[in-house]
Design a protein around this nucleic acid. Structure first.
Lengths: 251, 251
DNA sequence: TCGTGTGAACGATTTCACAGCC
DNA sequence: GGCTGTGAAATCGTTCACACGA
């Protein structure tokens, strides 16, 4: 029960060891994007207020988010856009190289392979895999799609030099668990799963889920409640009037 | 300051008027998916424990989530899978019809148009729009891609009968704001934006954001911290050892 | 004076723990 | 005896409000 034995408690004010809320991490890419735009426009300094406005959050949140990583701003002036961008990159690990393997080269896999978000911030699409004989061998961007069976030997050859840091699953739901097993066998310990399936994996493997239809479902929930309000008793939904800007950016 | 004037406060225990945490709503689709699998497997009853295990959350959360909508279970037995599934559908508005328009028919738009998540739970892809002359006129599934310019007249003709309930933006980031403006002009008051851009919209328009690369960036954050741990001082990241199952399903 | 950085207050969500019902 | 439903406690995240430094 000492200050250090309890996870999350921190006796030292050492910024590098502070626990960062997941909510903060998710906002960093949004700030980063806005900083890029500002820098492209030649803006060298920005206040938490201005940044908050553009990100659709409030200024206190912006300041608190950054303060978790250190003191990046200048009182009375604001934040230096270039310096701040560099610090966010460092916090997100965007200053390293993260080779990605995408498994499942349907429309979604292709969209991901070609997307900016998968080819910047340190990410590099390093391998594309599928099992469909009509897909294997085709080219997507500058890469040729290989058969999934090649993944394990590839990852173990060469002392693991070709092993991807992150595996992305963009297959139909039915194939997701099998693909995950292959990724684990290849020694890939971080998986981002776009298939709507909860994966069962050995402890120590990191998984993050992206479900393309959740936000649609959240929307239908909100619309139903709204409709309910229009046609009957007042029912406060998730959101009250006035702050209808929901979803990720926007508080 | 009365019980009803304060948003979120509720004097009445009326279940239909209770404020539902967004965190709960986001979990409902996951429960729903698991229930479908169980039902297909012929399972008629499930305990909160079992469901929690499969969803990667804890049992108390499952029970609390459902209790917000009413008492669906039977003490000593568990939940009836069919009945529970029906209740979740009702809560999510999946018992109504939600016509969707997808704007931006690249790989992502095509993936969404063909995905199960956009053709079940009450959703129906009702229109596909783009501005690229090589894309307009092509068929995707059973629909022909139309020019974005057709959206506004279509939505206003016929007394609004053809107006989509939800607009989905799957264009490049640069086009997102313009498309959003068109959707608003068409009278579409709910937007799900897959483009990495914060949208500026009139009050009253609901927006939800899906950023395909955030989870990748969260992953690189986690991996950096991990690497930091391996090569230096102990730093508690977002997650401690033992509960590495992060991302959406999984607490 | 202006705007950051941050304790402290607040609000939301999760977890605990157990009473109540089947 | 087993499992739900739920107040109460604990935890986590947001917002306030102001001291402090440029």
């Amino acid at each position: 029960m000492s200050a250090i034995s309890r996870r999350g408690r921190q006796a030292t004010p050492d910024v590098r060891a502070r626990r960062i809320p997941e909510a903060t991490i998710v906002r960093l890419p949004v700030y980063q994007r806005i900083l890029s735009e500002l820098r492209r426009a030649g803006v060298t300094t920005v206040s938490s207020e201005e940044l908050a406005e553009r990100a659709g959050v409030n200024a206190a949140k912006v300041r608190k988010d950054f303060s978790l990583f250190g003191s990046f701003g200048t009182r009375g002036t604001g934040y230096d856009t270039a310096y701040l961008a560099g610090q966010i990159d460092r916090a997100l690990g965007a200053d390293r190289e993260w080779p990605i393997a995408i498994v499942g080269i349907g429309n979604l896999g292709r969209a991901l392979a070609n997307s900016d978000g998968f080819s910047s911030h340190g990410f590099r699409v390093a391998g594309l895999f599928d099992v469909d004989p009509f897909t294997v061998g085709t080219r997507v961007g500058s890469l040729t799609v290989r058969h999934l069976d090649e993944l394990v030997p590839l990852a173990h050859g060469d002392g693991g030099a070709q092993r991807p840091a992150i595996g992305v699953i963009s297959t139909p739901a039915g194939a997701a668990q099998t693909v995950a097993d292959v990724l684990v066998a290849a020694g890939v310990a971080s998986i981002v799963n776009f298939a709507p399936r909860v994966l069962h994996l050995p402890a120590g493997v990191l998984v993050r889920y992206v479900d393309l239809s959740v936000e649609l479902q959240v929307m239908s929930f909100l619309l139903s409640r709204h409709a309910g309000v229009l046609s009957g008793a007042r029912a406060p939904g998730v959101l009250g009037e006035g702050e209808l800007r929901a979803g990720r950016p926007g508080s």
